[in-house]
């Protein structure tokens, strides 16, 4: 599959927004929030309990807004935002026993979003996969992003995303086969 011009166009649009946001334009930052919230949520969901992922999305964007002026190029934004999200997920567990990973069955009783049991079961299987596959699969299957969108939003190459999706899905199919 060819990396299409539509994605290049979307990247250019994002770059304009990033530059405007870095110059202090709150409206541009709000638009970036709309465009990147699913990516940030997916990255968080790959690491933290579902009950807290959405709150942490806010933290990530507040942190990003404060630091945005220090960003030197628009191209760096995607990887930078993803890194803030990953770091925030690490901070979530670091030095705070209250946030230590819980037994999944216990976690479901503590403010997790309303979802069928199957959703949590499948999410746990995905979270058991290698990190690169885990994140990409969650962005695709949970957040509903397409492969080209994932590449455009995360800054990964389309080929990497495609490989991660295919290999991750193959492993997930095997796990699901074993689970049934």
């Amino acid at each position: 599959m060819i990396y299409t011009g539509m994605n290049a166009c979307a990247t250019e649009e994002d770059d304009s927004l990033i530059l405007a946001a870095a110059a202090g334009d709150r409206g541009a930052f709000g638009e970036l929030y709309v465009r990147y919230a699913r990516m940030v949520h997916g990255i968080l969901l790959a690491r933290v309990p579902p009950r807290d992922a959405e709150d942490l999305v806010q933290d990530v964007f507040v942190s990003a807004m404060r630091q945005l002026r220090g960003l030197r190029t628009a191209a760096a934004f995607r990887g930078w935002l993803a890194a803030i999200a990953r770091n925030r997920a690490m901070d979530y567990f670091r030095g705070n026993w209250r946030n230590a990973p819980l037994d999944e069955a216990v976690e479901r009783q503590h403010g997790a979003p309303a979802a069928p049991e199957d959703a949590f079961m499948v999410l746990e299987l995905i979270k058991s996969l290698p990190e690169a596959y885990r994140e990409t699969l969650i962005l695709r299957l949970v957040e509903g992003m397409t492969g080209p969108e994932i590449a455009q939003r995360t800054g990964l190459t389309p080929d990497s995303v495609r490989v991660n999706l295919c290999r991750g899905m193959k492993m997930l199919r095997e796990l699901l086969g074993g689970a049934e």
């Binding site: 919230a37 699913r38 997916g42 969901l45 979003p113 309303a114 299957l141 957040e143």
Partner: peptide, 19 residues
């Protein structure tokens, strides 16, 4: 894949206005 998308959709961002 379609079945997994449907199963996991409730965990998608902004599903939790009642949280």
């Amino acid at each position: 894949v379609a079945r997994l998308e449907e199963t996991l959709a409730p965990l998608r961002y902004r599903h939790r206005a009642g949280l």
